[in-house]
């Protein structure tokens, strides 16, 4: 069981690292949202799965409730994550920022 927990933790760490590196490396604001919004969500899913598995290990009513609460965080983030991403994109479009494209770089 511990091995599964460790695997999920390392996977979550890889996704979180990818999100942070992507925020620094990508060229403009719109493409930075891709790693920021979604790699972080998946990293959170992996880490929370590991935490819930580790909590449920010594089985009791209280640990079961805590594991369910941890999964409630995941459900909440999966519902609100796209909405937050869309709110930021909408603010950028209304402020009039142009997306970065390949052709503009060639000019």
């Amino acid at each position: 069981m511990n091995i599964i927990v460790i695997i999920f933790l390392v996977l979550g760490l890889i996704f979180f690292t990818g999100g942070s590196v992507g925020i620094i490396r990508f060229p403009d604001f719109y493409s930075r949202l891709h790693p920021a919004g979604k790699l972080d969500t998946t990293g959170l899913l992996m880490t929370m799965l590991a935490a819930a598995l580790y909590t449920i290990q010594d089985f009791s009513t209280e640990s079961l409730l805590t594991g369910l609460k941890i999964m409630l965080i995941v459900v909440f983030v999966f519902i609100t994550g796209p909405t937050a991403t869309h709110a930021i994109v909408d603010a950028g479009i209304r402020a009039g920022l142009r997306p970065w494209t390949k052709k503009e770089k060639a000019d």
Binding site: G12, I23, R32, L33, D40, T47, A51
Partner: peptide
């Protein structure tokens, strides 16, 4: 470079803090 970029950074820090809080609890 823009305000919105800062907002993306703050949002990313926030979602990592959620995971960090649960790990601190463990």
């Amino acid at each position: 470079p823009t305000v919105l970029d800062r907002m993306v950074g703050v949002n990313a820090i926030g979602s990592k803090t959620t995971a960090l809080l649960v790990v601190i609890g463990l």
